[in-house]
Structure formats: C-alpha cells, structure tokens
C-alpha cells in the first residue's frame, strides 16, 4: 500500500510541478489543482490507511462506541478544509489569469510586456 501511495504522490507532484512551470496560465492553474490533490493524498496517507471496516470510519457508531480502530480523523479534518480552500484559491487564480489575459492580450507569461 505504502509503495503504491508513494508512487502516486510522487507522480502527481512531478506532473503538477511540470504543469506549474508551463508558459500557459491555465496550465499553471491546472498544475496547482493537481498539486493540491497530491498534497491531500499525501496528508491522508500520513494518517495511515487501513482496510475499510465498520470501525474504520471516524464517525462513531454510537455515543460511547469503542474508538481506537478508526482512521486518523485529524488528517481528514485538515484535508476537508483544504479541499474547500483550494477551490477558493483556484477560483481566485482563474480570475487572476483571466485579468492578466485581458491586460496583456496573451496567456503566455513569457510574451508579456514588462
């Protein structure tokens, strides 16, 4: 499991980085989205991934249910907010790219006038 996860996170980070370094602003935003997903998967894998069972869900069956079998709720809480925030950031970056395109007339950052 760890190996597959590590390979996935590594590949996603590599591809995200490659996209972020492109000239095209939309590709940069896409790259940041990929990087976000990679970071989220990394965070979740830091909590340790166990085979899904009735106890592994961090929502206790009842008040007072035994609790030590659950998946790590802390990383889930972190990722939950990260998802929503990354959406806000992506929207902002898209708007920024759009405005940059409007001002400069091109999506290519290397063609911008100083």
């Amino acid at each position: 499991m760890t190996l597959a996860l590590a390979a996935t996170v590594g590949a996603l980070f590599a591809l995200g980085t490659f996209l972020v370094l492109r000239e095209d602003l939309v590709k940069v935003v896409l790259g940041l989205a990929v990087l976000t997903q990679a970071a989220n998967v990394y965070l979740i894998s830091m909590g340790g991934i166990t085979e899904g069972t009735a106890d592994s869900v961090p929502i206790l069956a009842a008040h007072g249910a035994k609790a030590h079998e659950t998946a790590d709720p802390l990383v889930q809480a972190l990722v939950l907010t990260a998802i929503v925030i990354s959406f806000g950031m992506t929207a902002f970056l898209l708007t920024l790219s759009y405005r940059a395109y409007q001002e400069n007339g091109t999506m290519n950052v290397t063609e911008w006038e100083q």
Binding site: G88, L94, T95
Partner: peptide
C-alpha cells in the same frame, strides 16, 4: 461564509 464567498465568486465570474 462558504455559501456567501463561493456564490459571490460564481456570480461575479
């Protein structure tokens, strides 16, 4: 906050 913020973004964009 989520509803107001995100809907603002959507309506403006």
């Amino acid at each position: 906050v989520v509803v107001g913020g995100l809907l603002l973004i959507f309506s403006v964009v």
